[in-house]
Design a protein around this nucleic acid. Structure first.
Lengths: 201, 201, 201, 201
DNA sequence: TATGAATGAGCCTTCATTCAT
DNA sequence: AATGAATGAAGGCTCATTCAT
């Protein structure tokens, strides 16, 4: 019975939520610690009870949501057996997830910039490419499975996986730019149709 | 049109070149003005003879290369008449351009982050989405032209254009992450093949 | 005079003991309140039940030990009648006291720095010079007594007292620096011998 | 012809001078960088053109004056040949130096506190005990020389050197406390007389 | 009484920009 | 035109102190 720990965890989550709001408004490169504190309704010093530094807070936000997004995908997709359904679900979930977490979506692209160089040297951001590799491999395994059971045409699984990820990624960025509307369900549908018609036998 | 003006322009270009080197090394979010001055072999104050501010320097770098890249595409593509060739050239040129300007590629993704919000309020970066729209429209017009002359199957030109851009964009990012090798010519080829087989009659 | 008061006093002493350990390790200028709380095995807030402020805690530590040291000297010296023995005892006791309270010795020199200026404005530290004057006067009275009864040669009591104190002080500092070993009994002996041979008839 | 270097050095000295004034007023433990900047009549940022950090400034001040004091002693004492004169000069010079640099004297005792522990871990302050050893050895060599040539009585050179240093040190501290007046020339004289009468044959 | 989570005043340090030379 | 010394606004982080439990 240690309610303090539960509170601590809740508060950490609440800070991360507040942080994403700030990221969405001011960007991951321009926000100040005080902005997040104010947005979370706490004092500046309190932030440092939950995060060791500004960088720790940023990577904490990133890690939490990558984990959460990954888990969301995993849970849904593992419940499906047909590789075609899996592919479809993957695309739909990605659109849905970021459609309902617009502020996280914006931040993701800042995280990507952070992950590539600069401060990210030794930090958790080094994992961005690891994450990409993992997703590509997962996608490739779905594709290979589909090919094996004769559900998909023969294809270069690795290349196709990479391409699908690229499309999703590129689309997300266009959503951030406001060029396309991620909430428009027809986009995911059209994408699914195009991909499946191009891949399915 | 005195020689001085030419010198000024040359020096500006030289500073931009030096800046991209620094961006590639330290990122667009972490570099200091002094870094670029040193890299360009000039004094700190001299930078301000050529750029009004740090932000002006960043957007100057961005704009110059977008212009240059756009011109490169335009020159090549306008010399072609077949929409299929145009599409092919677009993809190949994009890969080639960034394959031979790796440091610019890295910086582009930082520019994107900058363009979305934060400092970008009033700056030249607001044009990032404008540029995207322009490219999508251009691509769509190529596609529509191809459809009209019966070279491409009937398709949703706007959606397809958006998707192609997304693929290119996503691939570029994977290159930055080091997950794919942009210099590998077979990638552009495979992409072309897939797209054209999916689009061509 | 309830038992609670006794407990309070005990705990205060215990905190002071813990504080000196911390002083010895981290110095009187760098320690944090939390360090002492942890070292005393109590909560941060509890410190403030026993000391009104950080400065109060520091001066509390200082005062307690000056009192204790003063009392130790007094008890011993008042039991002696011969001024020569008194002088000898003073030197031996000083060496012994700090030899067996190394961490206090270290802290004393920090206290001295504190006492001179800075925070010391209104604080108990202003008494450092008062204490010095008192000791000099006491020492001078011993010397004068010795001169009066013909035990010491005629001498400038005030100056000699000041010099003896200076020697003790300077030696203590060399002990802190690790240049001499305060536990080496021969030092106090040599000092005594030199002083007494120089002072005694 | 590089006047800039000369200026830089001069300004560094000027900052150090201003710093000692501040040390004397506020102590080495309580001063703020802005205090020194204001006292030197420069901007806060300018300090960092001359010193890498607060700690660097402190140790810079300390080192400069130890060097200067050491040089002052050396110059004078090496010009003398008689060990008795050397000893006399050492004492007089020490009193004179700190009598005319009261603010430095105050700061020295803070430096000592710093040197013993805390921040001084890896810093230049670790040299305080080295300096002490050097002085003790120098003093011992003067004493041994005096004994050898029959100017001094036989004595324990190391112990006597240590004691003389202790007296000087202790006296300086009493001066800081305001218990004795360092400008009172009779003190150095009395000390010299006492020492020489005790040491000389 | 004991606690430790919360707080914010305060300070070191950075760095874009200016301007005298 | 070119420079770099000087600047000070700005912001991350610390830590003594408070106070609700």
């Amino acid at each position: 019975m240690s309610p303090k720990i539960i509170d601590k965890d809740k508060k950490r989550q609440e800070i991360i939520r507040a942080a994403f709001e700030v990221f969405g408004r001011q960007g991951v490169f321009n926000f100040k610690m005080i902005d997040i504190a104010k947005n979370a309704g706490i004092g500046k010093g309190t932030l440092y009870e939950y995060f060791a530094s500004k960088e720790d807070l940023i990577s904490g936000c990133f890690n939490l949501h990558m984990e959460y997004f990954g888990q969301t995908l995993k849970d849904k997709i593992e419940s499906l057996s047909d590789p075609g359904d899996k592919l479809k679900a993957l695309i739909e979930l990605t659109f849905e997830y970021f459609a309902s977490h617009q502020s996280i979506l914006n931040a993701m692209f800042d995280f990507r910039a952070l992950s590539v160089q600069g401060k990210g040297k030794e930090s958790a951001f080094a994992d961005f490419s690891v994450m990409y590799k993992k997703y590509t491999e997962f996608l490739a395994s779905v594709l290979e499975e589909g090919v094996k059971i004769g559900r998909f045409r023969p294809l270069d699984a690795k290349f196709t996986a990479s391409t699908i990820l690229a499309i999703l990624d590129g689309m997300m960025f266009q959503a951030v730019l406001g060029v396309i509307n991620i909430r428009d369900k027809s986009i995911a549908e059209k994408l699914n149709k195009a991909l499946l018609e191009g891949i399915l036998k």
